[in-house]
Simulated assay, not measured.
Amino acid sequence: MSSAPLHDSGHEEPLTGEAPLAGGISPQELKDVFRNYPSGVALVTADDGTRAIAITVTSVISVSAEPPLLVFSASALSSSTPVLLGSKTVVVHILTDENAELAKLGATSGIDRFADTDAWERMPTGEPRFKGVDTWIRGEVVNHFEAGTSTLIVVHALEAMPNPERTGQPLVYHDRTWHTIGDGSRIPDPRRA
């Protein structure tokens, strides 16, 4: 596993707080734009051998089908990030409205996220996995990149539990609150009219 700064094409300085890029919008302007951009919600768990962590993320994206790669970001301010960076594998739980309490659990600071021992278990490979989440991906951390005040973590998917017959509706984070996407939110496809 290697760690390298993320570079902009043609730009030699890393995209970190150490070397500010010329111009650009303010941090608040970027936040204002993205608070109106809905994101899926996932809970990432890992264990680096010192402790287990669970963190809620809204930045999971699939970046390649061959090889199967996904990416998410973790804030440098999070106490969970060092464990993520020291872990060889992670479990990405794709959450539904039925798992909203897990999203809140992973987003709350200063609590023992594993206190309810009935809510989670160790996978045969050792990673902590929360029960009741019907879609998840277990993967190997293959790279990470510093990107400003965050770290992008690249994961090679090794095992998955996709559930096309899930009972819950997708959980989405939008405008600083949780939402669901259901049949009532579907927009008819004009190409099929």
Rank of each mutant, 00 (worst) to 15 (best):
A54V: 03
H7A: 15
L152T: 01
L21M: 13
V44W: 03
L6R: 12
M123G: 00
H156Y: 09
R191W: 02
S75D: 05
I94H: 07
P68T: 03
T58E: 02
A100F: 03
D118C: 05
G86N: 09
V33E: 02
T117E: 15
G23M: 07
P124H: 09
A103V: 07
E165I: 07
E140L: 08
L15I: 13
S78K: 02
E146K: 09
L30P: 10
Q28T: 09
M161C: 10
A19C: 10
D97Q: 04
I61R: 07
E121K: 09
F34L: 07
E18N: 13
F145G: 00
G126C: 12
I181H: 09
T117F: 07
T108P: 01
P188L: 10
R129S: 04
G49A: 08
S75Q: 00
S26D: 08
S75P: 01
S150N: 06
L152K: 04
P68M: 14
A4E: 12
G86E: 06
I153A: 02
G168D: 09
L77N: 12
I61D: 07
G139V: 02
G40T: 04
T135E: 10
R186W: 14
S80P: 08
M123P: 00
A160K: 10
I25C: 14
G182P: 11
S2W: 10
A157V: 06
P82H: 05
W136M: 03
D48Y: 09
A100I: 12
P5H: 01
H174W: 15
A74K: 06
T149Y: 02
N36H: 15
L6P: 13
D8W: 11
R122S: 11
L85Y: 08
G110M: 04
L95C: 00
E121D: 08
Q169R: 15
I111L: 06
P20C: 05
P82M: 06
R113W: 04
G86H: 08
F130G: 03
A103L: 07
